[in-house]
Simulated scan of single mutants.
Amino acid sequence: MIKYIDMHCHCHEYSVEELSSFIEKNILLVCVSDDPASSMKTLEIRKKLEITPCVGIHPWEAHKYNIKHAKNIADLAIKNNVKCLGEVGLDKRFVPKTYDHQFSIFEIFLEAAKEYDLVLNLHTAGAWREVYELLVKNDINRAYFHWYTGPLNLLEEITGSGYYVGINAAWKIQEKHRKVIKHAPLENMLTETDAPYKYKSLELRPDYVVETIEYIAKVKNMPVEYVLFKINENYEKLFKSPL
């Protein structure tokens, strides 16, 4: 069944009732986690609703945890048949002071992703190239650059390597993201919202993916139905699983 896809939603910040209302709108929620506690909450949500769970430690939270915590979360994914680690990655833009520690945590997730062929749902602010080169170095097969706003020349390398980039509803107010939409191949795009994050004047919500599909179709001069189909196809390729 064709669905709208929110590839990056912090579901643990919503009530089950709120999440249900989005799912009833035919939206598939890929639910990322920020830390051990939210990772457990994401797994609890999966028991009640049909979602795609991701567990991880956000780079902004990495300073609170150690390598053992990261290994425990990787083990949690394996034991619970979770196919996605996220939100994980590196951030040089907002929290550069903790970069070295972020790196040590991220290395654990890279190792797990390589060994068990897991999807990485990536935070890469200001560290787009560093993360990309680590993916290549570690032979990572499945990776998604959440809300990509990095250099366009690197975008070509990312998509050329078969990785995916997140198209966020922030295109409404973010010019550099509109440039990414223009230049990224549809075959490497997935839609997302980062809900319930508030970006400037925009309060992001999962149902914004509907407008994002329409905007991509307009920019690419393609039928909306075709864009929606390709986004679904991209999800299935990334997760190696039918919707």
Rank of each mutant, 00 (worst) to 15 (best):
D35C: 04
L118N: 02
A127H: 05
D117V: 04
Y197C: 07
A125L: 07
A195H: 06
F103L: 15
I57L: 10
K48T: 12
L110Q: 06
Y148L: 00
N80E: 07
N188G: 03
E187A: 14
T124S: 15
K83W: 13
E107S: 12
C11R: 05
A112M: 12
E107G: 09
A112K: 09
H177G: 00
R142G: 02
K3F: 12
Y132I: 02
E187C: 06
M189Q: 06
W171D: 00
S33D: 02
T42H: 02
T52K: 13
C11K: 01
A127W: 05
E175A: 03
V210P: 06
K48D: 05
L85E: 14
R205N: 08
P151I: 01
P151D: 15
K182L: 00
K220E: 00
K182R: 09
K97V: 11
K200C: 03
L120G: 08
Y65H: 07
S20H: 07
A70I: 01
E236D: 12
A195C: 08
V136I: 15
E130H: 13
E130C: 04
A62L: 10
S201V: 10
T124D: 04
K182Y: 01
P36W: 12
E111P: 08
V32K: 04
H123E: 03
N81R: 11
E107I: 04
N168Q: 02
Y132T: 01
S39R: 09
I51L: 12
Y163C: 04
H63N: 14
E236R: 05
